[in-house]
Design a protein around this nucleic acid. Structure first.
Lengths: 162, 162
DNA sequence: CACAACTAAGTTGTGCGCAACTCAATGGCG
DNA sequence: CGCCATTGAGTTGCGCACAACTTAGTTGTG
């Protein structure tokens, strides 16, 4: 944990030059970790015929049941430009159905087919392997998740304040 | 946030079901954080005419000087399939030069143009804004980076052990 | 020297992520 | 009621990530 000097967390004291180097590290770490994660899942999910993003969508559906594209997008921070084609692929793979809502004709509700629902059983074994492969303890995972959540939230607010 | 019981970090004691839910959280956190980061940079780098990935490549060049595509790829964990077109775009933007190495004709050395080197000055202000926008302390950033580094390393090894 | 194994870069094809846009349905509001 | 701003999904276009492949140059071995 490098147990930082716990001294001055004062960003403004750090010179631009060093900050650029640090930025390099942080950007890179996050980017690389995200892709390493994706890479692991790509292999683990190959048998299931799912990509990483498709898996995330399936997780939402397994957990929350049928819901409109909008809701899935909010949950995963993805827009229709990403979800529409992805959901079409899941549909043509026979895992989900897409039906126009009767109450609101603008909305398309995504529902699992029997095959899609059944796939959950086969997916249950995946996370254990991944968590083991990370080499992190459960506490570290939870801590990581907490920091990442704050980071995403803060960056989101910074974006809104444009 | 389920604030762990801080007891048993024993993964094998956690049922599949709960693990799937946890996996959802972790996958999503990392994926979302990486993209939120990317989103912030996209806006911050717009003036410089750089994408996030192009910025990462420029950081490597600013820091390490001229080097072959291979070396950049190792540093950023990217292959030629990603780098070749990216570097072509940087070249046509006038930021880098691509020259076949004389010693080894297979190798293409990437070098900054004056314009590319000059861009560093304008980029210096970017990281401060980002770090501020994350809302994290310097220590948290360093800790995060350390965990992510371990995670990437472990996942990389797991991948090699295929 | 000749030939096989390897290596670096580039190419092709697929899917994701996102900005910018279109289109149809909805929900005010005068 | 009629009009218009808003909303949800979809489309288009571009760049990244990566697997699988091609091509050209290099190295090792008999």
């Amino acid at each position: 944990m490098t147990t930082a000097p716990s001294a001055s967390p004062d960003l403004s004291a750090v010179p631009d030059d060093e900050l650029l180097r640090l930025d390099h590290q942080v950007c890179f770490s996050l980017h690389a970790a995200s892709r390493a994660f994706g890479g692991y899942y790509r292999r683990a999910l190959k048998d299931l015929g799912l990509t990483y993003s498709q898996y995330l969508v399936m997780l939402v559906l397994w957990e929350q049941g049928p819901q409109p594209v909008k809701a899935i997008g909010e949950r995963l921070h993805l827009d229709s430009g990403t979800l529409s084609p992805l959901l079409k692929r899941l549909e043509s793979a026979g895992l989900v159905r897409r039906e126009r809502s009767r109450e609101d004709e603008r909305s398309v509700v995504i529902d699992l087919t029997d095959e899609g629902a059944g796939l959950r059983e086969r997916a249950l074994s995946v996370p254990r392997g991944v968590l083991a492969a990370t080499g992190l303890s459960l506490e570290e995972v939870l801590g990581l998740q907490e920091i990442l959540g704050r980071l995403t939230g803060a960056l989101g607010e910074a974006a809104d304040a444009d």
